[in-house]
């Protein structure tokens, strides 16, 4: 920034393009400095820590290179990590598509004209402002530190018991255990999915509003049914957002207060086992990144970009 200004004052003739480039650097200079210190260096260090035995010394972190020992420990010795990781990955795997379908469905509904639309939108975006914090944890009935039965009772009081009562009311008794567990899982997950789709609905809604009216008119002229309209007009137009939402959903699951893998990492850190914690974080991150990359590569083939 200063550089560019000084040169201008001295009257050194600089080609317009080059001068503009200097201004470009000027605009992002502050961010570049910050990113170096608060993102890139920590990122590299964290990778480095995962290959080291880390301890706190006076004035700096002490590291001793141990190679892949930490990864070995995390994957083979740590009692909880692999279980948590498997559960978490599985959950992400089946939950993400459901969240996407659900949020698209809701966005299509909220895009229609009806009375009370503003109120409905306000309600459906509520999770955006609440679901990211520890409030969600309490709402979801997961009192991690106490693990008391009361909390569990509270979380299931509504979903499970109500479903059970409804079934009894309808005269359905003596369902097999498996069946009733299945029903309660579904009921529990509706809660989770609804609460995880706030931002996704917002993005899809934005995309739906950007569908040109001409496309809609043309479809109407040709006599398209709502069903055909959805598959031939809506879906192609929102397809770029399916990818964006997919990535967002996966990233969001990282920061979810319910993420057990991240919880485990935090515990390791509190025990000052920095090397192990870093290795855990990197394994998780690498797997998810690879999965997202793979899906992106596949999905990209089916996306309709208007411009190109």
């Amino acid at each position: 920034m200063a550089e560019a200004k000084a040169e201008k004052k001295k009257g050194i003739k600089m080609p317009y393009e080059k001068r503009k480039a200097m201004y470009g650097y000027g605009f992002i200079a502050l961010w570049m400095v910050g990113t170096l210190f608060f993102f890139l260096i920590p990122l590299v260090k964290s990778l480095w820590y995962s290959f080291n035995e880390v301890s706190i010394g006076t004035g700096k972190m002490l590291t001793k290179f141990v190679g892949l020992e930490k990864y070995d420990y995390v994957l083979n010795t740590d009692p909880n990590y692999t279980t948590y990781l498997k559960d978490m990955l599985l959950e992400t795997l089946w939950k993400t598509p459901l969240v996407l379908i659900f949020s698209l469905f809701i966005a299509v509904i909220l895009n229609q004209k009806f009375r009370g639309r503003t109120l409905s939108r306000a309600i459906f975006f509520l999770p955006v402002i609440i679901a990211t914090g520890p409030v969600y944890k309490i709402i979801n009935g997961d009192m991690s530190s106490t693990g008391n039965t009361g909390a569990a009772q509270f979380s299931t009081m509504f979903s499970t018991d109500l479903v059970g009562e409804l079934l009894q009311f309808l005269g359905i008794y003596g369902l097999s255990d498996k069946m009733s567990t299945m029903i309660s899982t579904v009921a529990d997950n509706i809660f989770g999915i609804v609460w995880a789709s706030g931002i996704q609905i917002l993005l899809f809604l934005g995309a739906l509003q950007n569908i040109p009216p001409s496309a809609k008119e043309a479809a109407q002229m040709e006599g398209a049914t709502a069903w055909e309209y959805f598959w031939k007009i809506t879906l192609p137009y929102v397809s770029p957002f399916i990818l964006a939402n997919l990535i967002f959903t996966v990233i969001d699951s990282f920061t979810s207060p319910m993420n057990t893998v991240m919880g485990r990492i935090l515990t390791m850190k509190e025990e000052w086992k920095f090397g192990e914690a870093s290795a855990m974080a990197w394994i998780y991150f690498a797997i998810v990144l690879a999965a997202v990359g793979l899906v992106t590569a596949i999905v990209n083939k089916f996306i309709y970009y208007e411009v190109e």
Partner: peptide
């Protein structure tokens, strides 16, 4: 603005979205 390395730098922005805070929290603490 157009400048050299813009693509790479913007890649870092995307990385910032993708990398969970938990990964960099430890060195950041140090």
């Amino acid at each position: 603005f157009k400048f050299k390395g813009k693509g790479l730098l913007f890649g870092i922005v995307i990385m910032m979205i993708l990398v969970p805070t938990q990964v960099i929290a430890l060195p950041l603490y140090a």
